[in-house]
Simulated assay, not measured.
Amino acid sequence: MIGRTYLERGEPVVVLIRWNGPGPRNVLIQRADGSKVVRPFRGLRRPKEETPMPSVNPPTNAKRRDLQAQVITRDGGACQCRTGTPTACGRPHTCGAGRCLTRHTPAAPLHVVARDDIRPESAAALPPGDLIALCDSCHRALLTRRRKTRNRTVPVPDALF
């Protein structure tokens, strides 16, 4: 899926990143004009023959794996959630003195996410220092906390007419 060319309304696009889990399966795509957009994977079609994309260089799986490995091994392969930090999930982590004790394993891999609450297309370009590795429970709790604390102001127009 990643690095493959698909058709979006008849125009070729390349899938750069995908997100799995509950809810919609979103992907970051790069269009022929170079713009990057996050959209649902549903609706993208495989071309009958491989449609070449001019001047599009999707990140390779090796680069992505290297970035993930860098972030995960930074803390010895453990979840980087700490109570009292801005990236804390909100759970107490009492048995670890404020630190999550979950380790990275093939059966329960850690999620690499941005430290700050930013849009996914911006997070895809962050360096390893701005990313953290979280276990599944901390990741889910952090996303829920971020979603609930986002500023949801509605722009007020200057005038009705």
Rank of each mutant, 00 (worst) to 15 (best):
G10N: 00
R45Y: 03
L7R: 11
G10A: 11
L134Q: 10
P120G: 00
V154N: 00
C89D: 05
G98L: 05
R4S: 15
P155N: 01
P86R: 04
L67D: 01
T60E: 09
K148N: 15
D158M: 07
R115Q: 10
R103E: 00
L131S: 04
P106V: 09
Y6A: 13
A125C: 07
S35I: 02
V15D: 10
K148G: 09
P155Q: 03
G21R: 00
G3I: 08
G34N: 00
C100I: 05
A141L: 12
M53L: 15
T149Y: 03
K148V: 07
A114N: 10
N61A: 15
P40R: 12
R39Q: 15
M1H: 10
W19I: 10
E50C: 00
H93I: 04
V112E: 01
R99Y: 10
V154M: 10
T87Y: 01
V71T: 02
M1T: 14
E50A: 15
I17R: 14
R9N: 15
A88W: 14
P127Y: 09
C138Y: 09
G21E: 06
P92L: 09
D158E: 12
L160E: 13
P47W: 02
F161V: 11
G129A: 13
Q30V: 13
P59E: 04
H111Y: 09
L131N: 03
N61W: 01
G84S: 07
P40N: 13
P92K: 07
R145F: 08
A88N: 05
G96T: 06
A133Q: 08
D33L: 11
S55T: 01
I29S: 06
A69I: 05
A107N: 01
N57R: 14
L143V: 14
P54Y: 04
R152Y: 09
L110A: 04
N151W: 01
P120C: 01
H111R: 07
P120T: 06
R25V: 13
